[in-house]
Amino acid sequence: AVSDRLIGRKSVVMEAISPQNSGLVKVDGETWRATSGTVLDVGEEVSVKAIEGVKLVVEKLE
């Protein structure tokens, strides 16, 4: 599936994300709604860990 190619990809937070609120990330020039178990600020680099419905699950790059 097209979405499977996103797992493991680097992306950049475009709208802040917290455990309570989804935000936005940009992956390969496309904007996606995303969630995370931690707070992520605009501009942080993250990695796509999973896809749940139409949202990406991301975490901060170490």
Rank of each mutant, 00 (worst) to 15 (best):
A1R: 12
A1W: 11
A1Y: 11
V2E: 10
S3G: 11
S3H: 14
S3K: 11
D4W: 03
D4M: 10
R5M: 09
R5C: 12
L6R: 04
I7P: 03
I7Y: 00
G8L: 00
G8F: 00
R9W: 04
R9G: 05
K10Q: 09
K10M: 13
S11G: 15
V12N: 04
V12S: 05
V12M: 08
V13I: 05
V13M: 01
M14E: 07
E15A: 10
A16M: 11
I17C: 04
I17S: 01
S18P: 02
P19S: 06
P19G: 06
P19H: 05
Q20G: 14
N21Q: 14
N21E: 10
G23R: 01
G23L: 00
L24K: 11
L24T: 11
L24E: 05
V25K: 01
V25H: 01
V25Q: 02
K26P: 02
K26N: 11
G29K: 06
G29I: 00
E30A: 07
E30W: 06
T31V: 14
T31K: 08
T31I: 15
T31M: 14
W32L: 10
W32V: 09
W32D: 09
W32M: 10
W32Y: 15
W32C: 10
R33W: 14
A34F: 00
A34I: 01
A34M: 00
A34L: 00
T35L: 07
S36A: 12
S36W: 00
T38S: 14
V39T: 12
L40M: 10
L40T: 03
D41I: 10
V42Q: 06
V42R: 06
V42N: 03
V42I: 10
V42H: 03
V42E: 06
G43E: 04
G43Q: 03
G43I: 01
G43A: 04
E44C: 09
E44G: 02
E44V: 10
E45V: 15
E45M: 13
V46W: 00
S47C: 15
S47I: 15
V48C: 01
K49N: 06
K49T: 13
A50D: 07
I51T: 05
I51S: 04
I51V: 13
G53Q: 03
G53S: 04
G53E: 06
G53F: 02
G53M: 03
V54C: 15
K55W: 15
K55I: 15
K55S: 15
L56K: 03
L56H: 04
V57F: 08
V58Y: 00
E59V: 10
E59L: 00
K60F: 05
E62H: 12
E62F: 11
